[in-house]
């Protein structure tokens, strides 16, 4: 028995390769479908997070994001309201009827509105 003889036997073995039955193929595919059903959450494609969720994740969660929004609005308010001189405040507070104009410049802006 030479190496060539043995190669001839290997070739015969390849030609006579055992083939899976249709029943086995069906069982394997059934397993695949069952595995999908068994773990639906793990199998689902990860959903793309929304903009708010992404921002919340960046800044450390929804609570942190809400705090930042509040701080931003407060900053906007502080920046928008023009400062009032202390002297003016003192004069106002010394009168019997106190009228405090928190946004002295707002009338001009409102007048320009169509």
């Amino acid at each position: 028995m030479t190496d060539d003889d043995l190669d001839g036997l290997f070739a015969a073995a390849r030609a006579e390769a055992p083939r899976p039955s249709a029943a086995l193929s069906a069982r394997v595919i059934s397993d695949a479908e069952a595995a999908l059903q068994a773990a639906p959450a793990a199998r689902r494609a990860p959903e793309r997070p929304g903009l708010l969720a992404s921002l919340a994740a960046i800044f450390g969660g929804g609570g942190a994001l809400a705090g930042m929004v509040t701080a931003t609005l407060a900053g906007f308010w502080i920046g928008f309201a023009q400062p009032v001189e202390l002297g003016v405040m003192s004069a106002v507070l010394n009168t019997d009827t106190a009228e405090i104009d928190m946004m002295p410049g707002i009338d001009a802006l409102l007048d320009e509105a169509p």
């Binding site: 595919i29 695949a32 479908e33 999908l36 199998r43 689902r44």
Partner: peptide, 13 residues
């Protein structure tokens, strides 16, 4: 298949 496509499992089989 991991994303839920059973047809992919048939082809791999």
């Amino acid at each position: 298949y991991g994303r839920g496509d059973a047809e992919a499992a048939r082809l791999l089989t």
